[in-house]
Every structure is written in structure tokens, then in C-alpha cells.
Amino acid sequence: RMDLEDDTTILTTLKSFNSFISQSEPPRGAILTAPPTLQSQYKRSFELLEAAEKVQSKTRFLQLDQEKKQMELSHKKARLELEKAASDSARDLEVPTALKQKIEDLEAERQRLEQLNGELEMRLEKHTLQGDFDPAKTRLLHFKMNPTAVAKQQRQQEVDSLQEEVTRLRELVRVVQESGAQDESSVLGLSLSLPPSKEVLELRKQKESSELKNQRLKEVFQKKIQEFRTVCYVLTGYQIDITTANQYRLTSVYAEHMDDSLLFKKGSSGSMQLMETEFSKTLGEMVSLHLHHQKSIPAFLSAVTLDLFSKQTVV
């Protein structure tokens, strides 16, 4: 805008100058009519010089102005250059800071990865401990007939046979129900007519055999007991009967009467005591001598035997 203004100033000056010159030329008809005076001519030239000087100074001013502007421009450029350089150098100065940040970031990343690696190693260790493996490198084998497989097979067979039995029994129940057996007793009757299970048969057989054994033992005992009693009777001369628990009745082979008998009772300590009977009352002397004094049941019994025997032989 300044330049345009300046140009306008120059143009206006030049125009006025031009018009001034053209005015100085006398019009064709007026040349002779009004001859210029020296004074006016001098005045005129002075004015011209003045105008010319004005233009010159104006031009010089413009030149200076332009120079100034150019200088300013170059200053500006220089400043920009400097600023740019400064900013560049500033950026250069910032580089270490950026690197520092980067180092910190990387350090943090490294720590994170280290931790992750630790975790992964722990997980890998856990997986290894649990039995995991890489199928690309490893094959996992076992013996076909291993104990677990065999045990599972056996269990399966058991389950199968039980299921078979259940099916069979269900079918049986269905048949029973369909045959119109409504009341319980007839169902029970039918179920009793079912073939007994193997176990029941086995137990029944066992029972029979043990009963038979028991019977035989009883017979043998009976026989032996009889034999023993007879021998006792023949050898000692007394028949021994058990009346009630812990009471024994002794009847001598030489007894004068059928019910002349002696009754002994066994005490809790195992000692034998003579109980009073009609017969024992007649033996006061022997009781006193052999039982009370000598404290010998065998001597007492022998004395009774001898006494009865002597009575018999006397007769």
C-alpha cells in the first residue's frame, strides 16, 4: 500500500511538472502578442528547478525507503533464519531428553516382559507338573491291558449283567401283573415259585449240611454221655443225675430204697455241699466224721457205699 501511495505521489508530481511545462509554451496565436519578460522567465526557471529538486528528493526518499525496506526484509529473513536455526538447535538439544524417555519406556516394557515371562514360566512349570505335553514332539503311550482298563472292563461287565437281570425281572413283573394277579398274596405266591437265586440255593445247602452235622454230633454226645454215666455207675457205685442247675443227685447201687439218695449242691466257688434229704438224715455219724471233720466227700461216699453194701450182704 505504501508503494502504491508513493507511486501516486510521484505521478502527481510528474503530472504537475508536465502541465507546468506545457503551460510555458505560448499558445500559437499568443506568441507574439505577449512576449515573456526576463523576470518572469527567471521566476519560471526557478520554479522549474524547485519542482525538479522536489521530484529528486522525492525519488531519493523513495529509494531510501526501498533500501530500508529491503534491509528490513533481509533482517526479517536473517531473523527467521536465526529463529529457525535456534529452533533447530533447540530440537537438537531435545534429542537426549527424547532418548531418555525412550529408554525409560523400554525399561518399563522390559520389566513388564520379564514379569510376563516369569508368569509364563510358572504356568509352563505348572502345566508340566500337571502332565501337559507338546504333541508335536511327544507321543503318549500306555499298555492296552493296564489294571485300570481291566478294572473298568470288569465293572462294565457287572453293570451289564445287572442290567440284564433288571430287564428280566421287569419282564417277569409285567407278566405277573398282566396275568391278572391283583391281590398281593397271589403275587407273593408266584414270586415264591420263582427259581431261587444262586445265593439262596447255596445258603440252603449250607444250612442242610450244618443241621445234619449238628444231628450227628448230638447223637454222638448222647452216646458218649450214656457211656460215661454207665462207667461212673459201675466204677463208683453211684448213679449221678442232674436235678436242677448245679444240683446233683447221687443214688447208690446198694441203696435199700429207690429214693434213698444224696443231694449235693455246687457253690459259686465250685465247692460241693451236701443238702438234707430223708436219707442223709440217717447218716448223721458219717456226715459228722467225713464231711465236717475230715472234709472229704469221696471218703463220705465210700463210707456210705461200704455201709449199704455191708447191710446188703448181711441180708
Partner: peptide, 14 residues
């Protein structure tokens, strides 16, 4: 019941 598992190299003949 128990079983014995053997982990072997991949190229092994079963």
C-alpha cells in the same frame, strides 16, 4: 485302579 503312561519321542514305533 492304576495305569502307567509313558511319554516318548514322537518318531517312535508303537
Amino acid at each position: 485302579a492304576f495305569d502307567l503312561l509313558v511319554y516318548t519321542d514322537k518318531d517312535l514305533v508303537v
